[in-house]
Amino acid sequence: MTPLGFALVLAAALCHATWNFFVKRINGGPELIWLFSVLSVALYLPLAVAIWVRSAAFDLTQLSFIAGSTGLHLGYFLVLQAGYRTGDLSLVYPTARATGPLLSSGLAVAVLGEAISWQIAAGAVVIVFGVFMLTGGVRRSAGNATVSLAFGIGAGTLIGSYTAWDAYAVSALAVPPLLMDYASSAGRSIVLAPVAFRRRADVLRHWREHRGGVLAIAVFNPLAYILVLVALTFTPVVFVAPIREISVLVTVLMGSLLLGEGNLRHRLGWSAVILAGVVLLASSA
């Protein structure tokens, strides 16, 4: 993996953990997704227009992949939000991040034809195992933990699906990464507009009470994935998908230290295992 690819994925992981922290702290629903999506559309509009003007006209295949990506991302956000409203940030999010790379790496090998070495496979397995144990492993099987794990697995399945889907779009079909993500934000804004109108009191409350957090989500949510998509234009999914899991380390620290979710010693220990897996994978040829 190239140093540039690793740097892009690392920066994306930090951005991803940051916006997830603010989503959990605000604790909103679909109206929050609509609010930060609309703001993202407005904030990134100048860049989107500039790239659109310089790009060739999209064909039907490219437009179909953009539409499919929008649907997968919308489903991910809705499942993730539902999980955050019923579970712990440091349980739902790591579970999703454990499921996602397994599926996306498998799809990359089976569908995209990417090669995988023993070191890549070993690094991915160490990362996924560390994330699984970070959630408590098989012992966390009752009450709120079960619900959190179910939502996490659902979100992870969508992560794996849209990662492989989008990787093909930006690498094989040459869809510009920023426009790929911008279309997703615009699609969410349109689809969720009726919900936002019905919950306009909540929309105004989120903006009034959490303006800084909402703006942070609006900036870091698109930026996190744009950086990943740029990396995917020259880096295989089997590298990118597992290394994105370094965001779990940051998220766990935020959940334990800033949201009072506890178990810091346990979570730090398994975070170190995840980091070891990242090093193993990133250092492979």
Results as ranks from 00 to 15, higher is better:
Gly123Met: 04
Leu43Met: 10
Trp52Asp: 06
Leu72Pro: 04
Leu63Ile: 10
Glu114Ile: 04
Val126Glu: 12
Leu72Tyr: 03
Ser141Ala: 14
Gly83Leu: 02
Val125Arg: 07
Ala142Thr: 15
Phe77Met: 11
Ser64Cys: 11
Leu60His: 10
Ser104Pro: 00
Arg140Phe: 10
Ala145Glu: 09
Val111Phe: 04
Gly83Gln: 02
Ala108His: 00
Leu103Met: 04
Val49Pro: 13
Leu112Ile: 03
Asp88Ser: 09
Ser117Tyr: 06
Ala82Tyr: 04
Thr70Val: 14
Ile116Arg: 06
Leu89Thr: 01
Ile120Trp: 06
Ser69Asp: 13
Leu91Trp: 02
Ala110Arg: 02
Leu80Asp: 13
Phe65Lys: 04
Thr61Lys: 15
Leu47Asn: 10
Val111Asn: 01
Gly130Asp: 07
Arg139Tyr: 11
Leu45Met: 15
Phe77Arg: 12
Leu89Ile: 00
Ala42Cys: 15
Ile116Asp: 05
Ile116Phe: 02
Ile66Leu: 15
Asp88Thr: 06
Gly75Thr: 07
Gly68Tyr: 03
Ala96Tyr: 01
Val49Thr: 10
Leu78Tyr: 06
Gly87Glu: 00
Trp118Cys: 08
Leu60Thr: 14
Ala56Asn: 09
Phe58Ala: 12
Ala56Met: 08
Gly87Pro: 00
Asp88Lys: 09
Leu72Asn: 05
Phe77Lys: 07
Ala145Asn: 12
Gly136Tyr: 05
Phe58Val: 11
Tyr93Arg: 01
Val79Thr: 09
Gly143Phe: 00
Ala108Asn: 03
Gly137Asn: 05
Ala110Met: 10
Leu78Asp: 07
Ala110Thr: 13
Phe77Asn: 14
Phe65Asp: 01
Thr86Val: 15
Ala67Gln: 10
His73Asp: 00
Ala48His: 07
Ile127Asp: 05
Trp52Gln: 13
Gly106Arg: 01
Arg85Tyr: 02
Gln81Lys: 09
Asn144Gly: 10
Asp59Glu: 13
Ser64Tyr: 05
Tyr84Cys: 05
Gly87Trp: 02
Leu134Ser: 12
Ala57Pro: 13
Val109Gln: 04
Ser141Trp: 12
Ser105Cys: 15
Ala110His: 04
Pro94Arg: 00
Gly143Cys: 05
